[in-house]
Structure formats: C-alpha cells, structure tokens
C-alpha cells in the first residue's frame, strides 16, 4: 500500500491537506463540542486540519485509501483516539488490505506509545485475523516491548492471549527464566511463570511442576529475601493445598536461612507465621532464631510468651508502616498457634 509510506512523514515538511490533490474535494469538518462547550478545544494547526479532514471522511464513512492515510496521520498525532482506530479497521476490511503492513504500522506507533490501549487492541485484531502465521511474530513483538519496559501490562496481556489462542508455548518457561535473570524483581515475569506452569499444555500442570519450581523460588529468595514476588509465587505453588505446604521442609529451611542472616526478615517471618497458624511446629533452631530476633528488637524480654505473637511483634518493628496489620494478625492467632 503506497499510501502508507507517508506515515513516516517528516513533520517539519508538513504539507497542508488543503494543498494535497487527493483531498481537494473534501470539505473539512470541525469538532462539534455542542452549543456551549463544557471544555473548549483548541488545536494545533496541523493537528486541527488533520482532524477536520478525518471527521469529514468519517462522517461520510468513506472507506478509501485516502481515509486510511488520514487515520495514519490522525493516529500519529493522537494514538489514543479510539474512534480513529475503529474507522481504520473498517477501512482495512473494506480495502482488503495486506495486514502484514498493518503489523509494521502498529509497531511504529508502539515506539513511544507502548501503553496505549487502542494500539494493543488493534494489534490483537490484526493478529487474530492473521492467525497462527502471526504467532512467532507476536511473541517477538512483545519481546521488543519488554526490552524497553519489562512490566508493560498491555504487552503481557497480549502475550498471554497469543500463547493461549495461537498455542506457541514451547519456549515460554525459558523466556520467563531469561527475564527473571535480567531482573529477579520483575513481578510480571513471575506472574507469567505461574501462568505457564499452570496453563501450558506441554508441562503437565502445577502438580508436575511444583517440585522444581519450589527450588527455583527458594533460590531466588536466597539471593533477595526482600523480594515479594518469589515468596508469593512459592505460596501460590501450594494454593489450596495446605498439607503439602505444611510438609515441604524446604520452606521453613529457607525461612531459617533468612532469619540467621538477620536482614530483610519480613517475608521469611510472615511465611513462618502463616505456617505456624496452619499448625506447623517449628524446630528448636527456628524457635531460637526467632527468640534471638525478639530480644534484639524489644526491650522487654519474655513479654511475648508464644512464638506466633513474638513473630507478629518483631514484624511490627520490622515493618512499622504496616504496624496495624501485624497487630491485627497478632490479635487473631488461632489457639493451635500458641505453641
């Protein structure tokens, strides 16, 4: 489509639409803001002109190459204008346009507008039409976005759709590992990892993956015990399976290692608290570690007679911003937790 070449147009060399031959017969149509506008709109000249011409072609629903060009121009000014995108899809359908060009177009728009809802919705529409041919390209496309922002919510949502709808799961767990090597704090990548191990038809599901994933999460915890994501991931591996959670000796061991290092204790302590509340009986080593923390944090040694209460009180000191939360936890400990 030759008309698309002007999307890379140099704006300093803007040719007014009124002087372009292909728009000679179009009467521009200004935005109607009602009789007495709630919000008066003023436009930059080139933007206003583009939108006036767009409105004109849109109101007559002219599905033509020059309409496609206008939507490109309008999108380059304001990619958030959803009406323009809607019209563009109608034009693309009517012209039976080559949608591979459209992939290129959206990729250009994505540079600098990667958090735009319309862009992603449009990309999805194109990929859906192209079907499985688009699968690998879509994974690559989201990969490029993640190089710039590895937590882009839209891109993750798009990628999950691609995996689900187009079934290209082969390398996804490795991809998660790669992203987590780059940034172990990337919660989006942890979420994607959970998505893969629970949903990929190739891996056998959560139960089959649990054992190795517990190791993976615990290793991540070992290097950064302050990292919220692997702790929640670890708990998620035993979602709704408290028996398994209580009986996996690797979990309290991981907590103990953090306690002994005496730094970044919050998630290790809260995990132990969770376990104790469910009936876990900590060994002497863990009890000693907690006791030693208690004495270093509160002046009144022995004021907390039970372990879970001690944990809550240490957490209240460790995490003063959420002191009320830890006090609340302390106030609703089950009888069984009074070990």
């Amino acid at each position: 489509m030759a008309s698309l070449s002007s999307e890379g147009e140099d704006w300093r060399a803007w040719v007014p639409l009124s002087s372009r031959p292909e728009f000679a017969a179009v009467t521009p149509l200004p935005q109607d803001d009602g009789p007495s506008p709630v919000v008066a709109i003023a436009y930059r000249d080139d933007f206003r002109e583009t939108m006036d011409y767009f409105r004109s072609l849109y109101s007559s629903r002219e599905l033509s190459p020059r309409s496609l060009l206008l939507t490109s121009l309008a999108i380059s000014f304001n990619p958030a204008n959803y009406t323009v995108w809607h019209f563009r899809r109608q034009v693309l359908e009517a012209l039976d346009a080559d949608l591979n060009d459209e992939l290129e177009f959206t990729e250009r728009v994505a540079k600098g507008n990667a958090k735009n809802y319309q862009l992603w919705h449009h990309r999805r529409w194109v990929a859906e039409k192209l079907g499985s041919d688009a699968a690998c390209g879509e994974l690559e496309f989201t990969g490029k976005i993640f190089c710039l922002d590895a937590k882009n919510y839209h891109a993750w949502s798009h990628r999950q759709w691609v995996l689900h709808a187009l079934g290209v799961w082969e390398n996804e767990l490795d991809y998660c590992t790669q992203l987590l090597e780059e940034d172990i704090f990337n919660n989006s990548a942890w979420n994607q990892r959970y998505f893969v191990i629970t949903k990929s038809p190739l891996l056998g599901g959560l139960k089959a993956m649990r054992d190795s994933e517990v190791d993976y999460a615990i290793e991540a915890i070992g290097t950064n015990p302050e990292n919220e994501s692997p702790w929640r991931y670890l708990r998620g591996l035993y979602n709704d399976e408290n028996d398994g959670w209580l009986n996996d000796a690797r979990v309290p061991c991981a907590c103990l290692r953090v306690l002994k290092a005496k730094r970044n204790l919050k998630f290790a302590l809260s995990t132990l608290l969770d376990l104790v509340c469910l009936g876990f009986k900590p060994n002497q080593e863990i009890r000693d570690a907690i006791t030693s923390l208690r004495t270093s944090h509160s002046g009144e040694v022995g004021s907390d007679s039970d372990l879970a209460k001690s944990i809550c009180s240490i957490l209240g000191h460790e995490d003063p911003m959420r002191a009320n939360y830890w006090t609340w936890r302390s106030g609703r400990l089950p009888q069984a937790a009074e070990v």
Binding site: V39, A40, A42, M51, N78, T83
Partner: peptide, 18 residues
C-alpha cells in the same frame, strides 16, 4: 480553568475522552 483552556495540547489529546 482547564475546562476553558485554549491552545493546550492536553485539551487536544483529550478530545475523544472528554
């Protein structure tokens, strides 16, 4: 004042979500 503001880019890009 935003409601009446002229020539602001903010008001232009907000046209569609007024």
């Amino acid at each position: 004042c935003v409601e009446k503001k002229k020539d602001s880019f903010e008001s232009v890009v907000m046209e569609h979500l007024r």
